[in-house]
């Protein structure tokens, strides 16, 4: 579990690094830390795997990957992990999760985010995934994304 320092660091950087020459100096000031202390803590969180990557986070939609869909299946608990491991090898899948169902209204437990430039392409990818992983006989739903109302909390981008 994270300690209080880690929580503060993560809260400080969660919505992005400012676009200035010394971004970590500026971020550090928001929590009363100097630059080197903040950088050391960030490197440590990265090395521990709590931060899984550091870099440019793109918006798929605006880059032309307009047809993004969340594809969900209801897979028996005893086989779902094995299937999840297979799905991760498909390069058009950006995320794959096992989640608790919300019964009775929501029976699905396996989630994938699939990206495509057009709706047909994304649908075809969802179909391919379904066929190649042997999931055709499980209930599924394809939820295309429409509008994005919010992506990150208080935006931290001074430019």
């Amino acid at each position: 579990m994270l300690n209080d320092d880690d929580q503060r660091v993560i809260a400080a950087v969660q919505c992005g690094f400012p676009l200035v020459s010394r971004p970590f100096q500026e971020l550090g000031q928001t929590i009363g830390w100097d630059e080197e202390r903040l950088l050391e803590r960030l490197r440590d969180l990265r090395d521990q795997g709590i931060i899984k990557r550091v870099g440019v986070v793109v918006h798929h939609h605006e880059l032309g990957f307009a047809a993004n869909a969340m594809v969900v299946w209801d897979i028996p608990d005893e086989t779902v992990r094995q299937i999840g491991e297979r799905i991760r090898s498909f390069d058009f899948v950006s995320l794959c999760y096992l989640r608790q169902r919300c019964l009775p209204d929501w029976p699905y437990n396996l989630y994938c985010m699939i990206h495509g430039r057009e709706r047909d392409e994304t649908q075809e990818r969802a179909d391919r995934l379904t066929a190649e992983c042997g999931l055709a006989h499980y209930p599924r739903a394809v939820l295309f994304s429409r509008r994005r109302f919010k992506q990150c909390g208080a935006k931290y981008f001074s430019c």
Binding site: L19, S21, I50, V54, E62, K155, C159
Partner: peptide, 27 residues
């Protein structure tokens, strides 16, 4: 670099330059 990143952010192509956290580790 700073100018282009700023433009790409304003145009909505970039969400942020920052960290991606492993879910569930934080709160």
């Amino acid at each position: 670099v700073l100018e282009r990143l700023c433009v790409l952010h304003k145009e909505g192509l970039i969400s942020r330059i920052g960290v991606v956290l492993r879910p569930r580790r934080v709160g």
